[in-house]
């Protein structure tokens, strides 16, 4: 039994993080391009059902079930996966670049004396070898990476870089025990509790249209104008992190890597520059419209329609125009 490409799944309380499926899609791509098999690893407690669900589209699912990995800790996951790698010798270990993965994936690489290329936006084939692409300087420049030497190559993919909908459910594999010797594992950190920062009043992930507000609106008093725009478009109001950090809108309206990820059919970004932390939360939206007075704002790189202008002039005009045309 050999493991070629191993995708490490992420779950909490038996519920799968959807980003894992994106990593599987990436894995399927590599599997095809490199002629390698694809396996998935899931760690946790009471994850039997989840392991079965994960069998879709892969050769097999390895399950490592134990208290010591019931709650995620870097110590637990790294030690367990290290044992598995020693046994199975995978060529690639893939992750989705979530907060959890950021916490342990490079530690794991260091422990394996191998390396990790993180937060990749994709990969391309250079003959027979894959070249992994990630962004540096906050999304302004791309960088190519390749691996050399023997041993596992670790790669994490940016959330949203691959589309979970593209999962090829053609084949289906089996679940097998990863055979981790948990008594050898020492976990030094203790998870005390998990809690929600703010009670969610609105579920932006269900919104059809979103008007999102950034620092460009300058002060909270200008929110009325944005409310009006949202109302006339029959949209929900959302915001980038700085706006929520300053308390101009509640935290549950935050879109971005530390807020919600949304995919509405219309995402209208007003006064948002388009920092990477925000983009990852909305770049898969249907139609993206951006209004910003800086023609070089990165938001325009992912927009379908862009307005370069003063939002205090454009938004009132837009409100009027939409009212008329609807």
């Amino acid at each position: 039994m050999s493991v070629d490409i191993l995708v490490v799944a992420e779950q909490r309380d038996g519920v799968l993080n959807r980003a894992t499926l994106e990593a599987v899609v990436a894995g399927q791509g590599l599997s095809k391009d490199l002629g390698l098999d694809l396996s998935v690893l899931v760690l946790g407690k009471n994850i039997g059902d989840l392991a079965n669900d994960l069998c879709v589209g892969v050769k097999e699912v390895l399950i490592a079930e134990h208290e010591k990995v019931g709650d995620y800790t870097a110590d637990g996951y790294c030690a367990a996966i290290k044992q598995i790698v020693a046994k199975e010798a995978p060529k690639y270990i893939l992750f989705s670049h979530t907060y959890m993965v950021r916490d342990y994936s490079s530690k794991l690489a260091a422990a394996l004396n191998r390396q990790l290329v993180s937060d990749c936006v994709g990969y391309k084939m250079d003959g027979e070898s894959p070249v992994f692409v990630r962004q540096i300087f906050q999304g302004k420049i791309d960088a190519d990476f390749t691996f050399s030497g023997d041993g596992a190559n670790l790669v994490s993919f940016q959330v949203g870089a691959f589309n979970a909908d593209n999962l090829d459910s053609g084949t289906s594999g089996e679940v097998r025990d990863a055979g981790v010797a948990f008594d050898e594992i020492e976990v030094r950190t203790k998870v005390l509790d998990i809690f929600e920062g703010v009670k969610q009043e609105v579920d932006l992930s269900k919104a059809e249209r979103i008007v999102s507000v950034g620092r460009g609106i300058k002060k909270p008093e200008n929110m009325d104008l944005m409310n009006e725009l949202a109302a006339v478009l029959d949209a929900e109001l959302a915001a980038s992190r700085p706006v929520c950090d300053d308390g101009w809108l509640p935290l549950d309206r935050q879109v971005g890597s530390s807020g919600q990820t949304v995919t509405p059919s219309l995402y209208l970004a007003v006064g948002i520059s388009g920092a990477i932390q925000h983009i990852v939360g909305m770049k898969n939206s249907g139609t993206i419209v951006a209004i910003n007075k800086d023609p070089h704002a990165p938001i325009f790189d992912i927009a379908d329609y862009g307005v370069v202008g003063d939002l205090f002039e454009v938004v009132p005009a837009l409100i009027a125009a939409v009212k008329e045309i609807r």
């Binding site: 907060y99 950190t189 998870v191 998990i194 809690f195 920062g197 935050q254 530390s258």
Partner: peptide, 9 residues
Amino acid sequence: EGGWFQSVE
């Protein structure tokens, strides 16, 4: 993610 927090010792 998603506005959740965790306490760890």
